[in-house]
């Protein structure tokens, strides 16, 4: 249990998707104009990461990894399909996004209409594929660890995008030099936020 909490907190603060690895920057910059839309996108990302990372973990450990097919019989023990990783992961992500979209539409139309266009866009958000690839690189021992890593990364993205949206709403009333307006100042603020998040570095629970 302690391990799971450790992975969760670590992936929110120390290995934050946005500030430590710059993943999901495109949507982070494009959808952070107002707090409301950014809350919607953040929630959708938590949802999809929480689903796709464990599913891709199962795929990795039972089909794609070296020797993962050995449950089919001893003659499959040396099969290594890891070169198919990228195409399988992206297919799973695209399919899961579609599935999540249909489930939400069926059971919670209000949430569906508030997420709206962001759901399909998530398929090409690099934070999602990045989450699965980092999961593969870290060799988690059990699926619960993958779940907590996925959820933690999603929450980290949520915090980052809501934070920058709030700052951007305020900064509209500030006197920023013209060429720096919009994109430039957003980058610099993100950099400063990243420095703040670096203070969590090295914390072990």
């Amino acid at each position: 249990m302690q391990d799971l909490v450790n992975i969760f907190v670590k992936s929110i603060f120390i290995d934050n998707m946005v500030f430590a690895y710059f993943l999901g920057m495109c949507s982070y910059l494009a959808v952070s104009r107002t707090v409301n839309t950014s809350v919607g996108l953040g929630a959708a990302v938590i949802f999809v990461l929480g689903f796709t990372v464990p599913v891709n973990y199962l795929l990795e450990s039972f089909i794609l990894g070296r020797g993962a097919l050995s449950w089919l019989g001893p003659q499959f023990a040396t099969v290594d399909l890891s070169f198919l990783t990228f195409i399988m992961f992206i297919a799973i992500i695209a399919a899961m996004v579609q599935l999540v979209e249909m489930i939400i539409e069926k059971f919670s139309p209000t949430l569906y209409s508030s997420l709206g266009i962001f759901l399909p866009l998530i398929a090409v958000n690099c934070a999602i594929l990045g989450g699965s690839l980092f999961m593969q690189e870290r060799n988690f021992g059990h699926i619960t660890e993958a779940v907590s890593f996925g959820l933690g990364s999603g929450v980290g993205f949520f915090l980052a995008i809501v934070g920058i949206a709030a700052i951007r709403e305020k900064i509209r009333y500030s006197n920023v030099p013209d060429p720096l307006r919009g994109l430039g100042i957003t980058y610099i603020i993100t950099g400063l936020m990243g420095i703040a998040f670096m203070s969590f570095m090295g914390i072990e629970l």
Binding site: R181, L183, G184, G191
Partner: peptide
Amino acid sequence: ILPPMALITVGVIIWIHRHRDRGLVDVS
């Protein structure tokens, strides 16, 4: 070398780029 400086450096590059090329300035 640390990650945050990449963001700040890009911010400065954008600043210089837009300063030279006034048509790109974000007026909103």
